[in-house]
Design a protein around this nucleic acid. Structure first.
Lengths: 152, 152
DNA sequence: TATGAAAACACCCACAC
DNA sequence: GTGTGGGTGTTTTCATA
């Protein structure tokens, strides 16, 4: 589908705050409530908007220790890859996992309470997955930017 | 604040789908609508729930080229650091930016249309920021997992 | 705290322009 | 694309236990 300037602005607004009423959105966009309603439905039906979620502030739940782990597998057979991906996706400390180019095979983002919890995670969960060769971890010192909103 | 089992389940539900009605949530949790309403308000007022947003599927907007760039600054004076962080945060291709431990100073996540757009980004935006020493980029081959929901 | 009832509000969809 | 209208459902408040 194609987006005009209004669609883009609408997506920006909804990606910032999805609890705005259609009336408020209509006012921002200079459209009628009905027009806004139909544009939103179109974006939902086309899968552009995949879901609406609540975002939790990790600082306010005492879980703001973030680590990025580069992971290398010992082998890259279909079987190993599939199994690793399935196992790692199950771990709820793992917020993101990407198969990437470069020196390592995967990059994962891990969220836990503190360094001690991270150690537990590495020893008891991550490295329990078979076929992991080596890992290289980086710890977050400060979160400079983090947004879920993408420019369309 | 402290969370009981119901709060945790409620947060999980809202982080998955914030458009559920309080009635549906009440049914899932075995509570009354008002009880759910007040728990949600408490979570919002305590800053546990920071916002409600629409999530856009990057595949459906033809913007699914993801790169991770490790960045090293030439110097680490307060002035350079502050300036870099301010400039990089302004770039809307940069979804996330973390000051990290390890061989590099920063890890950023970049979202653009394709490799050509990434090249443009690197040449015309990122490396235009002063004091960047070296960079090391990794490209996403596949997104194995990506969630905004954190376990509380 | 939890609840039910009631008012205020927003959404949804059809119709007319 | 805008506007209206009305039925439906939801949010919010409040009295009550």
């Amino acid at each position: 589908m194609t987006f005009d300037a209004i669609d883009k602005k609408l997506l920006k607004l909804l990606q910032t705050d999805s609890k705005q009423t259609n009336k408020a959105l209509a006012h921002h966009l200079g459209l009628s409530v009905t027009a806004v309603y139909e544009r939103i439905k179109k974006l939902e039906n086309n899968g552009v908007i995949s879901s609406y979620v609540a975002l939790v502030d990790k600082k306010n739940v005492d879980k703001d220790f973030v680590a990025f782990c580069n992971i290398k597998l010992v082998q890259h057979t279909q079987e190993y890859v599939v199994k690793f991906e399935r196992e790692v996706a199950k771990l709820n400390e793992v917020l993101e996992c990407y198969h990437i180019s470069g020196d390592y095979d995967y990059l994962i983002k891990v969220l836990v309470e503190d360094m001690e919890a991270f150690r537990e995670f590495m020893v008891k969960k991550l490295t329990k997955i078979d076929h992991i060769g080596s890992t290289y971890s980086m710890f977050m010192i400060n979160e400079v930017k983090h947004t879920t909103a993408i420019e369309v």
